[in-house]
Design a protein around this nucleic acid. Structure first.
Lengths: 113, 113
DNA sequence: TAGGGTACTAACCTTTTTGTGGGTATGGAA
DNA sequence: TTCCATACCCACAAAAAGGTTAGTACCCTA
């Protein structure tokens, strides 16, 4: 009860992260991109229930944030490849912790914790 | 490029975590509750820009998920204390990683990564 | 000439989330 | 009697997020 908590202001690390990767899809997309380069159709197939619009929209903001790299080959029909940037690869430990959290949650739920 | 990625389905750990602590406020609330028991007014003061309705609403679902404990003293005027449950305390490493992520993001942004 | 393939846009709509401004109960203090 | 304090609730409004459908561009192949 002694420790002073930082007050939550407009700019705090939790909010920054929430803005960067919050929402329903961004982390799922980035998770698919981890360690591999994918085109739109592959991503769509890997996340069956995302709509094309959402996928494109979220990729766009991820590119703008510098978390995802977009490489266009300038061909017709278009060929565009998406991959994680260096910054984007930092989501790995975050996702790992999320997986961890849900696992622990479900464990404790089973034993009535 | 070799590693097979798990397909994202309705039930995957990332989504579970997103459902439990996703959204704008839940993690901020839980962060304030870490290591201390707080009443509504204190929470409100610690997160200045949350509306009372949101605070109450989010606390309610956190209680329902078993992440937050609610202790009412049955007094008048009411006195209710909120704290993290065992399950709720598992957010600590998650929040830590979020702080980490935003720090790394901002570092790389500064040096142009 | 028609149709396929790919990444993407735009218009429009529905659902979800968030915010605002009020109200309630109750005992005690003024 | 009036008002305060506290933890809520409710009706409503606004904003954000998400979804659907229908395009576009352009080269190639049938």
């Amino acid at each position: 009860m002694e420790n002073k908590k930082i007050y939550i202001t407009a700019r705090c690390p939790i909010r920054t992260t929430l803005e960067l990767v919050g929402g329903k899809w961004k982390l799922l997309i980035m998770h698919q991109l981890y360690g591999q380069t994918l085109r739109l159709n592959k991503l769509k197939a890997a996340i069956p229930d995302i709509s094309e619009k959402m996928l494109i929209q979220e990729l766009k903001v991820l590119v703008q944030s510098g978390l995802v790299h977009r490489k266009s080959y300038g061909e017709v029909p278009p060929r565009v490849e998406y991959s994680l940037t260096g910054k984007g690869e930092n989501v790995k430990p975050l996702i790992k912790e999320m997986v961890n959290f849900s696992r622990k949650y479900e464990e404790k739920s089973r034993v009535g914790g």
